[in-house]
Amino acid sequence: MRIAIAIDSLGGGGAQKVMLTLAKEFTELGHEPHFFVMSDNTAFDIPQSLPVHICFAKKDRDFNRFWNLAPAVEKLTAKIRSIEQTVGKFDLFLSNLDKTNRLMVKTNVSPLFVVVHASVEEELTRHAKLGPFAYLKKLLAKKALNGHHLVTVSEGIANEIRQTKRIEPASIKCIYNPFEFDEIDHLSQQQAQGIPDSDYLIHIGRYVKQKRHDVLFQSIAKMKSQIPVVLLCHNPKKARKAAKKYGVESRVVIPGFQPNPFPWIKSAKALVLSSDFEGLPTVLIESLACGTPVVSTDCPHGPSEIMTGDLARFLVPRRDPAALAAKLDEMLVSPPSMAEVDILAKVQAARIAQEYLALVK
């Protein structure tokens, strides 16, 4: 099959990483994925064999318009048709992220599936706090999905959409994110500078409100154990300032962003997630793939689908530093069995690629 993957950019981010993994698997299965990237911003290493089509110039005002989308839709439609004249018709279109979705749903390409990577309600709640205009932009982006086929990355997101009825899709299907476990295992065995010699916990996530570093730092302060916590994030300066505010600066190790976090994860006693919400938290699955147990807030959506069986002991309520501290202490004394981690079989890249290919009937 020839598959078009449309997305805002390739400038880093979870959705971009997911789609690149999926495209790689499509290629290995003998299919032909193409990326339609709205703006030319790339942070990932892109295989030379993977076609990437830039749809808008960096200074193109049409792409950034909020009200009048028609000129941008016309340009995007023309770009897709032009590429199809060269390589042939696409058998499947996958659209990702709000800006791209608002355009793709108006191009009349088919079959089109919009991939929903995060909780719709949590995103709307967050944007409501930014003011009425920010909320309206987000709401219109979500309403644009009415009448279209959706793929959600967790059952929790699918159930939320069904229950709230804010979006009324033509269909909705959950397909988990793909993971390449052989590559994770390979990367986890590489040498990395700066990993502590002693035991430590690890937290990985951008320094943004959603990740709730404040809850993490408060829980560290309440722990009985004095084990250090490694933070891998993009903004070490802000993280250190917050750690100092909560009196745990001496307990926190912040080496900054690591292009290969897997040796750090593999060597940790446990990984901790303190988020308010997620889509399907990649870092939990990556940690379990490295054989490192996890403690996580039971946030919407994903952790409860990942942490089943004995792992479910280490789900804690959101925004409860005392509960998180208690579970981190419990983890150090009585970690869960890692013999059977059910989620890993469900998210293997080859299996996920087949689930996407099965969308075309």
Rank of each mutant, 00 (worst) to 15 (best):
1 M>Q: 08
1 M>I: 11
2 R>P: 03
13 G>D: 00
18 V>L: 11
25 E>A: 09
29 L>Q: 15
29 L>M: 13
32 E>K: 12
34 H>L: 12
38 M>R: 06
38 M>H: 07
42 T>G: 02
44 F>H: 08
47 P>Q: 03
58 K>S: 15
62 D>H: 00
71 P>H: 11
76 L>D: 09
76 L>P: 01
83 I>A: 10
89 K>V: 11
89 K>A: 12
91 D>A: 08
93 F>K: 04
94 L>I: 05
95 S>P: 07
100 T>M: 00
102 R>P: 01
106 K>M: 12
107 T>W: 01
108 N>A: 13
110 S>D: 15
111 P>G: 08
111 P>N: 04
112 L>I: 04
112 L>C: 06
114 V>P: 04
115 V>K: 07
115 V>G: 06
119 S>E: 01
121 E>H: 14
124 L>N: 08
129 K>N: 11
130 L>M: 10
130 L>H: 13
134 A>C: 08
136 L>Y: 02
136 L>W: 14
137 K>A: 00
140 L>E: 12
141 A>P: 09
141 A>F: 03
142 K>E: 15
147 G>R: 08
148 H>C: 02
155 E>Y: 14
159 N>W: 11
159 N>H: 13
168 E>P: 09
173 K>R: 14
174 C>K: 12
175 I>N: 01
180 E>K: 13
182 D>F: 02
183 E>P: 05
185 D>G: 07
185 D>P: 01
187 L>S: 09
188 S>N: 06
189 Q>C: 15
189 Q>E: 14
190 Q>M: 12
195 I>H: 04
196 P>W: 11
197 D>V: 12
198 S>T: 15
198 S>V: 11
200 Y>W: 06
200 Y>M: 00
202 I>F: 03
204 I>G: 01
204 I>T: 03
206 R>L: 09
210 Q>V: 07
210 Q>W: 09
213 H>P: 04
213 H>C: 03
216 L>W: 01
217 F>W: 04
217 F>S: 02
217 F>L: 02
218 Q>R: 06
220 I>S: 11
225 S>E: 14
227 I>F: 07
227 I>S: 11
228 P>Q: 02
234 H>D: 14
241 K>A: 14
242 A>T: 15
245 K>M: 07
246 Y>Q: 04
249 E>S: 12
249 E>R: 07
251 R>S: 06
251 R>F: 10
253 V>S: 12
255 P>M: 03
256 G>F: 04
261 P>I: 09
263 P>K: 00
265 I>V: 14
266 K>L: 07
267 S>L: 13
269 K>P: 05
269 K>W: 00
270 A>V: 08
277 F>S: 13
279 G>C: 02
280 L>P: 00
280 L>G: 07
281 P>C: 01
282 T>K: 12
283 V>K: 07
285 I>Q: 06
286 E>L: 10
287 S>T: 05
287 S>L: 10
298 D>V: 07
299 C>I: 06
300 P>I: 06
301 H>A: 12
305 E>K: 10
306 I>P: 04
307 M>D: 05
307 M>P: 10
307 M>K: 07
308 T>V: 00
309 G>M: 03
312 A>Y: 06
315 L>N: 06
318 R>M: 14
322 A>L: 13
323 A>S: 05
324 L>V: 08
326 A>R: 11
327 K>T: 03
333 V>R: 15
334 S>M: 13
334 S>F: 01
338 M>S: 04
340 E>K: 15
342 D>T: 14
347 V>R: 09
348 Q>P: 06
352 I>L: 05
352 I>A: 09
355 E>K: 13
